[in-house]
Structures are given as structure tokens and as C-alpha cells.
Simulated scan of single mutants.
Amino acid sequence: MAKGKTAGALACAEHVATYTATQAVALAAVQRATGMRLSWRRAALGLAVSAVTHYVADRQGGHWRDEQPRGVVRLAAATGHSGWLQRDPNAGYLMDQAWHKGWIFVAALVAAGGEES
């Protein structure tokens, strides 16, 4: 996958930009359909949290078993999961998806928190 390779930074950024735009459209649609009122600043901050963390995770693609781990893989090692990454062929994918879903939850809390000023 290009977005995980050294030369893939642009491919990853393009992927994250379209992903974030899709999230923004979905958020606007939900807001319109439900009458929910979000602060545009908090919504933008939530989308930024989602975008940045998505980019960080996707740049790890293909590096789950490297000798010199980076980023998310270092986090796995620090929490005692490096053996799991080595043994289970699905571990990288599962950790990637857990990372994405966890940060989407955080981004939603950021977007929904606070009051319109």
C-alpha cells in the first residue's frame, strides 16, 4: 500500500483529506437531519483530531513487523503487545482498526463537547 511507504506521504495525505471530507459531509447531514447544533469550531477540531490520528496510523502501514518499530508499533511494544504483532498475521490490521475507532470516539467527544460561544 503506497500510503505506508516513505514516498507515500502524499498518497496518505490525499486519502486522509478525502476521508475527512466524507466525515464532514456525514456530520453535516446528521446535524441537518436531527436538528443537532454543534459549534463549528468544535466540529472542526474533532475532524482535525480524526485526520491527524488517521494519518499517523496509516503511515505505519506495512511496518508492523519492522526491526525498528515506529509510532503505533512502538505503542504496542510499550504496552506488551509486540509478541502478538509478530505471531498473529491479523494483529497489525486489528490494532490499526482499534486505533482508528478509538480516535474516532475521541474526535466525536471533542466535536460534541462544550457549548456554542
Rank of each mutant, 00 (worst) to 15 (best):
A48T: 13
A24V: 04
R32L: 13
Q31G: 15
V49L: 09
G46I: 15
T18F: 00
R42G: 04
A28P: 02
L27P: 04
S39H: 06
W40A: 11
A43T: 07
R32P: 01
A17R: 09
W40M: 11
Y19K: 00
S39E: 06
S39K: 06
A24F: 03
G35Q: 03
A26G: 02
Q23F: 09
A17P: 00
V49H: 04
A33W: 07
M36R: 14
A21M: 01
L45E: 14
M36L: 15
R37C: 13
A51Q: 02
L27E: 04
A43G: 06
S39N: 08
A33P: 00
L47P: 04
A43Y: 12
R32G: 08
L27I: 12
R32D: 12
W40S: 13
T18M: 02
L27K: 03
V49C: 06
L27V: 14
R42V: 05
A29S: 11
A24N: 04
V30E: 03
A44V: 12
M36P: 01
A33K: 07
L38N: 05
T22N: 03
G35W: 08
L45P: 00
M36I: 14
R41L: 13
S39Q: 06
Y19I: 00
V49F: 05
T22G: 08
G35M: 03
Q31T: 15
R42E: 04
L27T: 14
Q31N: 10
A26E: 00
W40E: 11
A28G: 04
A33S: 08
A17M: 07
A48K: 03
L38M: 12
R37T: 15
A44I: 11
Q23L: 14
W40F: 10
A29D: 09
A44K: 11
A29Y: 07
T34W: 09
S50I: 02
Y19F: 08
R42S: 12
V25D: 01
R37F: 09
A51W: 01
V30I: 13
